[in-house]
Design a protein around this nucleic acid. Structure first.
Lengths: 207, 207, 207, 207
DNA sequence: AATGAATGAGATTTCATTCAT
DNA sequence: AATGAATGAAATCTCATTCAT
């Protein structure tokens, strides 16, 4: 699945990168507050620090902004997660660490994740598959860690499907930390939330 | 928290009820397909079977439609769930049945739940608290069943907060069946999904 | 070749007709002065006597206005010409009268004809064939009168192609009266222009 | 009537000439295809082989491009025609040759002539008189040839105005070859068209 | 002299809402 | 109570022009 090409009138690739970063940052701020549809392109331009004309030098349509935002968030979540996962733990411990890391990343990027989570459905039809695939990639990262534990005989999961389900549950519990934030924060710190969820998940599947 | 009053020019309460039901049905169809923001009031009127002028005899603004939709869906989910729960099982079995019932209701109303789930954030600021409270009510229904089990010494949950968390997890796993529908359906029937999730949840918390 | 369907949100066919007539009148005034491209939709709305919103209740796009204008002008030119031609003259006299009538119609509608002549090229690609066919109809009307004369042995024209050419010349001399208006008016009244052109044309082809 | 001065930031007259030639060539190509108004300055720059910044080093506004285009086309038509006319024929023959030559030039430059013909009306108000005068010059060239014939007693034209009219007819029949091209080409080669038109014109006015 | 990124006025179009019938 | 034509604020997007490099 190819990354969608967002058109730009500007040639300098460095500049495109820089401006788009400004744009994404500005847009996330606004989307966070008012959502994609209630945010105007003029507001995006202003918040990004340039004029409406300049905005359209770097995108083809408003929807492109949403695409860039979603894409950037996914990339960053994935990159941060990968970094956290890059350690030499193994077995159940590795799974625990993965879950904790994922929750940590989600917490670090709560606004962004929430935005992506709520607005991705407004992506143009053609961009959707690409973004769904990103989501899939994430699932697979978790999935493969779970699978390793199963193969090491540490977990009581019989079928592939069950492994997938556990991975989905973990991911969704991560998102849940963003979209039920206001309720959950009353009860738990991130650490408490993480510890409890890990405990329940593992007790539910451990041999 | 009072139900928000949606203004109407029409006096006949019966008629108001009837027209709003038409409206909600029409709107859900459209929101399901294109989301709240991409649906026009004209389309809602047409799909509901009356004119744009008539639509505005029964609401004050487009956002009122969304509010009516969300409210109606919550009420129906809650009513159906209540009905399912109205039996004389007890103990862990009662919890299992509650989870299964909830998942069943969510499945029966998947389109509606998904719509509500994705569009509720677009509700007018004043309406939000009321809807959040509805969500809270739902949580409490599940929560109290879990709490009963704890009090009967059947579950290994130490704090109130932990009970709340389990309830949230159950609810979110219900929603998950709607918003990860396309992926999950490839792997599971509703029954399989229900069975596995119940198993994992319970093993995770049972004494 | 079907007439292009211009979309309208309004149901009342009578009203559509009325509003479009206002619109065409307003638009011709403006196009005459500033051309299609320099005229804004807001100006068209204002000149037509309604708001920009109302304008778009009766058309789908700005180009539709141009189409309506061109279509209406052709229809009127053709209708007027038909009426003038509806008499019992025959032979060379009939041809003379046809030419004079055509020039008269063109003169009566000089602004409209000029507009159509200058702006038709801006019609949307799909509408062009329909308008070209209208032009063709006009040519054929003249053509058939010339052909009758030939068949009556009154004109010295050997081939079909030559008949067509004469018809084209007549039509173009009509248009010429609109687009070289400022120069020609210095030298001739319409009557003088008509008389001289008829004389030259006929001497050029009469037996 | 002075040639309108098109401003340039560049001093080197040679370079100005060169760049403007590139520009005219590029612009004609584009205007031919999409018309003046639908062509952007960016496109003109690109098609001309330089940047938008450079384009504006050689003109003051987009309309200047149109002016340069129209001016250049007129000059070339006139120059080519003059060259063709520079022979020692005389009498009716000279007129015949003039018409044929003019039609030939028009045919050689059909795209250019068509562009000029269709877009000249978009020239800025101040430039229009100059271009009309060019058109007038052309008319006079033909006119004086006709007049010579009249003075030699070869043509049956009584008044100055009649001479003018014949000249106009000839010019318009030339243009007609460009703007009715698609219809006329089905019936005639340029040679046939030329021969027939000359025949009709002359029979119409010859003694 | 050449470049091309930046600008913002202005164009087209949409659509929630009103109100006379 | 029902209708639907009218409205105009506001949204997206374009593009001629400028100016720093």
């Amino acid at each position: 699945m190819r990354k969608k090409k967002v058109p730009s009138m500007v040639k300098d690739q460095q500049l495109i990168k820089k401006r788009r970063e400004q744009m994404i940052k500005g847009a996330v701020n606004l989307f966070k507050e008012k959502g994609f549809h209630r945010t105007t392109t003029r507001e995006i331009a202003k918040e990004s620090g340039f004029s409406i004309g300049t905005l359209y030098e770097y995108i083809g349509s408003k929807e492109d902004v949403l695409y860039l935002v979603c894409d950037a968030i996914y990339e960053e979540v994935r990159d941060r997660l990968k970094q956290y996962l890059d350690n030499d733990s193994s077995g159940i411990d590795r799974l625990k660490q993965a879950i904790a890391s994922y929750f940590k990343v989600v917490d670090e990027m709560k606004d962004e994740v929430l935005v992506m989570y709520q607005e991705a459905k407004s992506l143009p039809k053609e961009a959707l598959p690409y973004v769904l695939q990103k989501e899939n990639e994430m699932t697979e990262m978790i999935e493969s860690i779970v699978r390793d534990c199963v193969e090491d005989g540490l977990l009581d999961l019989e079928e592939e499907a069950e492994i997938k389900l556990v991975a989905h549950n973990i991911l969704v519990q991560g998102h849940m930390w963003t979209f039920r934030r206001w309720v959950l924060k009353k009860q738990f710190t991130l650490e408490q939330y993480t510890e409890l969820q890990i405990e329940h998940i593992l007790k539910g599947i451990i041999k």
